[in-house]
Simulated assay, not measured.
Amino acid sequence: MFEISGVGIVAAFLGGAISFLSPCVLPLAPGYVSYIAGQPAAKAGATRSFAERARSVVLSLWFVLGFSTVFVALGAGASLLGGMLLRWKYELGLAGGVLIVLFGLVMMGAIKIPAMMRDTRPDVKVDGGSAVGAYLLGLAFAFGWTPCIGPVLGSILAVTATSGADGMALLAIYSAGLGLPFLIIALFTNEIAGRLKRIGAAGRWLYRISGGLMVLMGIGVMTGQISRLAFWLLETFPALGTIG
């Protein structure tokens, strides 16, 4: 495994945060958090006690650990696949670059792939309000969200398989980026409920801009110039070199 650079760590974390802004995650997040905590649906202006907030955060953390388990396992699989196919590194780079460009175009809205515009929520009979239930729901919804957050998640898996990066570490960082907004919502559910539309509008633009950056990254992977981009980022933002 190659060591993950500071650029890779930041990119994976931001990738998780951007996935949270996808149309099938952000609008539903407060409802998920309320159900996981076994609390009433979020209402703008309503107040919660410190104990209710703390319980919501703790149970949401179990939920985050649930979907993180699935994503880290996917990262391990991508690393294993990349190691097995290392002799075709050049061909894998081309294929991975094409996939990343495709995912970026989907995020920009330039092309539409119906399978990536929806989530498939499994009908899991688990009551909210327990750590075990929250973890199981995290496992289940990881698979349900995968089609919708596929562009970013798929790009990280493609980079892992084609570069030999540590997929488990990258996907753990990605999961942290996706999970942190859930914990913030768990802490400030009612305060955020009234601002969700504005957050969603800004998030959609950020999502599209990120898609454009992914197109450039995919081209860099295909042409072998992605390393130059990483070096440029390190020269421009030296602090990235201290991460990791």
Rank of each mutant, 00 (worst) to 15 (best):
I156F: 15
F143V: 15
I192V: 15
A165E: 11
R195C: 10
F141Y: 03
A165Y: 07
F182N: 10
T162H: 04
N190W: 03
G144T: 03
A142S: 00
D166M: 05
F143T: 07
A140S: 05
W145S: 06
F188S: 07
A161N: 07
I184Q: 03
S155D: 08
L139Q: 04
A142T: 00
G164H: 01
I173N: 11
E191M: 08
A158L: 08
G194P: 08
F188Q: 04
G150N: 13
P151I: 13
A165Q: 12
T162L: 09
T146C: 10
Y174L: 02
G154V: 14
F182S: 06
F143D: 05
A169M: 14
A169F: 13
A161M: 12
L183A: 01
N190Q: 04
A142I: 00
G167V: 01
L187G: 08
I184N: 02
A140W: 00
F182W: 10
G194L: 06
A186H: 00
S163G: 05
G167Y: 01
S155M: 15
E191I: 01
F141V: 00
I184L: 12
G164Q: 01
A176W: 08
I184S: 02
F143A: 15
A176N: 09
T162E: 09
G144H: 04
A172F: 15
A176H: 08
L139S: 05
F143M: 12
L170K: 12
E191C: 01
A158N: 11
A161H: 10
S163C: 02
A193K: 15
G179Q: 01
L157F: 10
L139R: 06
V152L: 13
A169K: 14
N190R: 05
G167E: 01
T160N: 08
A165N: 11
T162S: 15
T160P: 09
A193R: 15
P151A: 13
G164N: 01
A161D: 07
F141K: 00
L157C: 10
L183K: 02
F182A: 06
W145N: 14
F188L: 14
Y174K: 03
G144D: 05
S175D: 03
G177H: 03
D166F: 05
G177M: 02
V159Q: 09
I173M: 10
